[in-house]
Write a protein that binds this DNA or RNA. Structure first.
Lengths: 117, 117
DNA sequence: CCCGATCGTTACGGACCCGTACCATTAACG
DNA sequence: CGTTAATGGTACGGGTCCGTAACGATCGGG
């Protein structure tokens, strides 16, 4: 059963959620960072730098830097893969899971308000 | 009639649209910039720097810089208000309208795909 | 063993953005 | 007029991010 949504609704939803994020001082993530964060929390592990770079169609340093930033924010962690020490496994954190959950709640909430629009 | 959407749907939708934006090389706007752009295109004119700053809960230079950047990208334009030359009126552009329209289409499209999730 | 391939990170020069503070222009009003 | 208030923009020091290129560590096959 598809989720029917009209363009005007989509735009109002998109705007309002972004407004919420800005106003609540939720860390001002770029589209890239958001895509990385949600990929880590929605797709099945394990996640590697190379894998994320391929999925997003960006270069490796972009992922490395994004992980640096999100690491400082406590949203993700890195750990060496001991079976192949060349790899780095990106791991979820409690704080990250909560942030993602809050985002989901925001979207759901605003979607409900805007249904009639 | 409210728009019912489950948290898991919301997150998958949010992720997929951001992935699309990144992969298609759509300018990597921050949450702030997105909020500003959509406010300009969804709310009734006229829009001023001060008004936008108040709506987003940020300082004026944030708006000025965002308008500089979006101006370079051709998404918005500025014009002096001739009736009160202290004011600057932010105006929409064809390119900006198209970008907003594309965003709406992306959201609608992905929402349709993910309905069952 | 060693050599090539793979993985993540770092270096570099340049661009953008932040928040605070200050500035130039314009309007409003006594 | 001149003075005050309001608006948008700019200067500054500091941080983050970009893309390209190089690097060190590690694996795997000959």
């Amino acid at each position: 059963m598809p989720l029917e949504i009209r363009p005007s609704q989509a735009l109002r939803l998109w705007r309002q959620v972004h407004l919420d994020l800005v106003r609540d001082g939720e860390s001002d993530l770029s589209a890239r960072q958001t895509a990385i964060l949600l990929t880590i929390y929605l797709e099945l592990p394990p996640h590697t730098v190379r894998g994320l770079a391929a999925q997003l169609g960006v270069t490796k340093p972009v992922i490395t830097r994004a992980l640096d930033t999100m690491g400082k924010l406590g949203l993700v962690t890195r750990r060496r893969d001991e079976t192949d020490r060349r790899n780095v496994v990106i791991q979820r954190t409690v704080a990250g899971a909560l942030a993602v959950e809050r985002l989901a709640d925001r979207v759901v909430e605003r979607a409900r308000e805007f249904g009639a629009g």
